[in-house]
Design a protein around this nucleic acid. Structure first.
Length: 343
DNA sequence: TGTCATGATTAATG
DNA sequence: CATTAATCATGACA
């Protein structure tokens, strides 16, 4: 503990003013009528003003002297009177401001990102959602997933330790100030409301510091997220087998290259990619095939042969079940077998 | 390093 | 909500 605390705890033992003395305005007159020179009050005020310039020991001694001074109750009651007059003007100033929308926004975001809130649940859920949205092959996404989670946990840890530090500092500081005020209340009148207000002011100050912490944490999460999303954009080609499966399906359903949801799921499973990736692939393939059929002719022939061979290899019953779609019923032009790849 | 291929994203559409 | 068309951003390769 520092000197300030020592000082305060040291002073608590000093004889204070009883509450009964506080509200007694007559005490001033009583004291004055006892013939004390007016100058005494000036001296006392002077000493109060000078108190901050003195060393702690000196101050303590002087405080003690002040508290024991016979004019002290008189001064105190004067201060009470003054206060009574001024407190009215202060009262209007103090009103509860609504919760800061900015800090609420930050809180919500931190909660949503799983930085604040319950220990693991939120974080992994957010990461999982992000990973699901990211797609990619299972191994890739799990790598990115754990990477993201590790980074998020790091941010989370820093955030919480900082927050704890701030909270501790805040309560420590509040305690100091309250002790100080309590101590001062022996010399000057301090209402509980005032202490309350002071505490509120301190909390506001600290919460603005906390907001900075929250803000920078949010920024860190955003950067992490954007990096993660960028990583998602980092295109990884599907493996050969996967594109083969997709192409096989595409060219064998050229008349209607729109796999059903079930078919997509099946393809996704076969290719070890997500359903949305299958959708992406078919979307891209359809549009690119349509745009330049000539370019895909060779590929089309290749897969037409492949499926033909497959069909031949499989028994007749299986091949019938495989292609329910009517061939060439108004879809994309069927491939033809010209060697130069032209229609 | 430039170019093409390719997976992902986005706005528009029905 | 699925799809199209355009576009982005990167991978692959010469």
């Amino acid at each position: 503990m520092d000197d300030q605390t020592r000082m305060m705890t040291g002073l608590t033992g000093l004889g204070g003013l009883q509450q009964a003395d506080v509200g007694d305005p007559d005490s001033v007159r009583k004291q004055q009528s006892l013939g004390q020179p007016q100058q005494d009050i000036g001296d006392i005020l002077q000493q109060i003003m000078a108190i901050t310039d003195e060393s702690l020991d000196e101050a303590q001694a002087r405080k003690h002297a002040l508290n024991c001074h016979r004019m002290k109750p008189a001064l105190f009651s004067v201060l009470c009177e003054i206060k009574e007059k001024t407190v009215l003007s202060i009262r209007g100033v103090q009103e509860e401001d609504p919760p800061d929308p900015q800090i609420m926004r930050l809180d919500n975001m931190l909660l949503a990102e799983g930085v604040s809130g319950p220990e693991k649940g939120g974080g992994s859920a957010a990461a999982a959602a992000a990973a699901a949205a990211a797609g990619g092959s299972p191994t890739d996404s799990s790598i990115e997933h754990s990477d993201y989670r590790a980074k998020l946990a790091q941010i989370r840890q820093i955030y919480h330790s900082e927050l704890e530090k701030y909270e501790q500092a805040c309560s420590e500081f509040t305690n100091h100030v309250m002790n100080l005020l309590r101590e001062q209340s022996r010399t000057r009148p301090i209402s509980p409301k005032e202490i309350e207000r002071m505490v509120a002011i301190i909390h506001r100050k600290f919460s603005s510091i906390q907001m900075q912490l929250k803000q920078s944490t949010c920024e860190a999460v955003m950067i992490l997220r954007s990096r993660f999303l960028d990583a998602r954009r980092k295109r990884r080609n599907f493996n050969k087998q996967a594109t083969e499966v997709l192409n096989e399906y595409f060219y064998s359903h050229l008349s209607n290259p729109y796999p059903s949801e079930e078919a997509k799921e099946e393809l996704a499973k076969k290719c070890a990619i997500t359903v949305s990736q299958v959708s992406n692939w078919f979307g891209n393939k359809r549009i690119r095939y349509k745009k330049n059929i000539g370019k895909f002719q060779e590929e089309a022939n290749l897969y037409a042969v492949k499926t033909a061979v497959d069909a031949a290899n499989v028994s007749a019953q299986a091949s019938q079940a495989n292609s329910p779609a009517t061939p060439n019923s108004g879809g994309y032009p069927a491939p033809c077998y010209t060697p130069d790849g032209r229609l």
